[in-house]
Design a protein around this nucleic acid. Sequence first.
DNA 1: ACCTGAACACCGTTCAAGT
DNA 2: ACCTGAACACCGTTCAAGT
Lengths: 182, 182
Amino acid sequence: MRADARRNYERLLAAAEELFRRDGTEASLEEVARTAGVGIGTLYRHFPNRDALLEALLREQFEGLRAAAERLTELPPEQALTELLVLFTERITQYRGLPASALAVLRTPGSALYEACHAMNDAGQRLVEHLQRAGVVRADVPARDVLALAASVAWLGEQSGDLEQRERLLRVVTDGFSARSS
Amino acid sequence: MRADARRNYERLLAAAEELFRRDGTEASLEEVARTAGVGIGTLYRHFPNRDALLEALLREQFEGLRAAAERLTELPPEQALTELLVLFTERITQYRGLPASALAVLRTPGSALYEACHAMNDAGQRLVEHLQRAGVVRADVPARDVLALAASVAWLGEQSGDLEQRERLLRVVTDGFSARSS
DNA sequence: ACCTGAACACCGTTCAAGT
DNA sequence: ACCTGAACACCGTTCAAGT
């Protein structure tokens, strides 16, 4: 990549980080380009769509989450579910709108973030299935429901801005998925 | 109201119903006006903002939900929570985006839908408090958390389009709020 | 009273023209 | 190769001019 192109790429990423953090995943791309001091066409050249920008910003984090989910298999099963939900919620609340974006990405296999997002989700599911076999998570519900409900609690936190509520509800949800609830 | 004004009002309402149902609560207001066969200015004259339109469409339904929540106090407490969540979820999924809109309305006391939404939410909370005193809902969590979590499950249903998942998660959530979970 | 639509300030996205 | 910004097709919202 040409030096000026590389510089533009970095500037766009930094601007996107800043504006996604401020305005959420639906931040204006024109403002991202303006903030980066670059023409709007340059943004589209480097990142053909919003998803590509998200991917560049989040791939590593999702990858880390996937790895973490795999490591959690070693933990005592009683702690693993709580730990998974805490880690997942942390990441998915990075930017406002991310729970919605992640769910959308998961439903569109072609998208830029799909790989990382799907791998993470899969690892989470495998952990949950492991916990179901261990008898600590109820088995009358598919494993994929767990992260889905966690994402929806994360979404609620965005809307209400009440982080204590989010913590409480994460506990309620954990209890709801506990095997003794079924 | 003048006859032509009344007619425009009705047309706008019908168009909004149709487009909210098709596109969700963020449907284009310009398209609503176009569909109604009316200038955009006329829409704004009758409904100063999107919320006013929502209010005209939903006030009665929210009012009905409030009344229903009050009647549920008569039910055996074991059934009341499930029943409340089912009724609430039905209404709040009327239009895509409504869970988000309702939460937003609840946070802006001046808004058009605030009264009806708040009254409904309050009635729901009182029912939950009643169930907490009856010992069927866990008491270590504020009553307002219950409808909030139900709204977030409703939101998830919008995103995934998986209605069976929504039903399952409503059960998980109900179990999570059950007194034997705390 | 009420209606209309042009006007303004924004978007996302594409693409011809430039270097 | 890469960058730029005008162009197009949309928004939400206001308000002067009309009836």
